[in-house]
């Protein structure tokens, strides 16, 4: 049972985490990003579309569509995020409005396009792309260790990709010059500008990164929880990861802790209901566990919760 909690907790928590990292990039650069929900959906749409077409020609057993989906979901998310970047950086739109609008548009567009593609290319009325559940890996040897072994058992390939991406993202944000500039953009863009660095460019890149990482997360959800791509992907994971990153005080490592809390509390709840032999409606009650826990923790940890200083502010060179 503990094994199952760890396995399911990771497969839910890690995609949330990678999306939250994207959010951190964007928000630390000074761009409020409520668009994560839409970005993950739009990215996953592109990935699923590519995978679905590849599956027609390569057959259901090939692993190529899976990895292609991950790659294209990142590209798709990045491309769609440019719209948010364009609105916030170039058009100086209100960032909150832009984020919400991007979400609404993503839902409408992907739902519409999924239907059109299914009808035009496959001649059937369907509003989803069947993808199937991804293959899982078990590391021999390590997975035999009691309890901890579960971290190496039944892992989805996307979890490995996410961990690699997360480590790189952490390194770039905290150990490189670019990361330093990015963080400075969120705290004092005027100083960054005075140092001769292009604030707009850095912010735009940060938003694109958030799109790519959200796309990866969305694709992971599509391959694990739902086993297909449909509008069912918009159930609020994006908002949940925003909550995680604010809870994590806009820092990567504490955000990981928040995401794992969501992941493990979620899977523990499910296991609890099953173990106690309760009717399935009780799982709804158990499902509030992660959120109640978060609220309680927030009571203790919110004293020093500070957003990046210039978050949400439109950068205007002339303004001091």
């Amino acid at each position: 049972m503990v094994d199952k909690i760890i396995i399911d907790g990771l497969s839910f928590g890690l995609p949330l985490f990678v999306m939250a990292i994207g959010g951190i990039y964007s928000e630390r650069s000074g761009i409020t990003n409520l668009a994560l929900e839409g970005l993950q959906g739009a990215g996953a749409f592109v990935g699923a579309l590519v995978a679905f077409f590849m599956m027609q020609s390569l057959g259901a057993n090939s692993q190529i569509p899976y990895y292609a989906a991950m790659l294209f979901a990142m590209l798709g998310g990045m491309l769609y995020a440019m719209l948010h970047g364009l609105l916030c950086v170039k058009f100086k739109a209100d960032q909150v409005i832009s984020g919400v609008v991007i979400n609404i548009l993503a839902m409408a567009l992907t739902e519409f396009l999924t239907k059109v593609v299914n009808r035009v290319a496959f001649g059937k009325p369907s509003n989803k792309f069947e993808l199937g559940v991804s293959k899982r890996w078990t590391v021999p040897g390590l997975s035999e260790i009691p309890v901890i072994g579960a971290f190496f058992k039944d892992i989805y390939p996307f979890e490995v990709i996410i961990i690699v991406v997360a480590v790189v993202a952490w390194y770039v944000l905290y150990r490189t010059k670019f990361g330093l500039h990015l963080r400075a953009c969120g705290d004092n863009p005027h100083a960054v500008d005075a140092a001769g660095i292009d604030v707009a460019k850095i912010r735009f890149i940060a938003v694109m990164v958030s799109g790519a990482l959200s796309g990866l997360a969305g694709m992971s959800f599509a391959y694990s929880i739902s086993a297909n791509y449909s509008s069912g992907i918009y159930v609020g994971y994006g908002y949940l990861s925003i909550a995680a990153l604010i809870f994590g005080n806009w820092k990567i490592v504490p955000t990981l802790a928040a995401c794992m809390l969501f992941g493990f509390a979620n899977s523990a709840g499910h296991q609890l209901v099953q173990a106690a032999g309760l009717p399935s409606s009780y799982s709804d009650l158990i499902m509030i566990l992660p959120y109640v826990l978060t609220m309680l923790l927030l009571v203790f940890f919110s004293k020093h919760n500070d957003a990046p200083k210039a978050l949400g502010e439109i950068y205007d060179k002339g303004k001091r």
């Binding site: 609020g236 908002y239 949940l240 925003i242 909550a243 604010i246 809870f247 499902m287 509030i288 959120y291 109640v292 978060t294 609220m295 927030l298 009571v299 919110s302 004293k303 919760n305 957003a307």
Partner: peptide
């Protein structure tokens, strides 16, 4: 408690 209203709203929604 200085709890960000976006986070608490999302949690309470769930």
């Amino acid at each position: 408690f200085n709890i960000n209203e976006v986070v608490s709203s999302i949690m309470i929604n769930y």
